[in-house]
Amino acid sequence: MKLELLLILILFLVGFWGIVGKNNIIKKIFGLNMINAAAVILFILEGSRSGADAPILGKEGLHIVDPVPQALMLTAIVIGVCITALALALAVHLYRVSGSFDIDRIRDKVHNEN
């Protein structure tokens, strides 16, 4: 069993705990970022075990790593950033209308207004 993989799994689960167990919506967004980061780290780390050099050609005798995970994760990271930005904007809006970052209080407030 590889220790680093276990650590990534723990990182993921801590992030998931942040989403499920915390009431503060900003912490929930942090949690979302953490699980996204864990997935990215996992993909990159495991993909990098297939070689020793960066996937940039030009020299002889290179033993490059698999570049596919890196290209895919580039996409995943950008998408993660976008989702975070949007979530934060929604969080700000919810704070303005309810005066709280607590998900239950927000729900109460919003529910009463409708």
Partner: peptide, 11 residues
């Protein structure tokens, strides 16, 4: 997360 099969290298 703990899969340990060798990484595919065809690509």
């Amino acid at each position: 997360f703990l899969a340990d099969n060798p990484w595919p290298v065809e690509a």
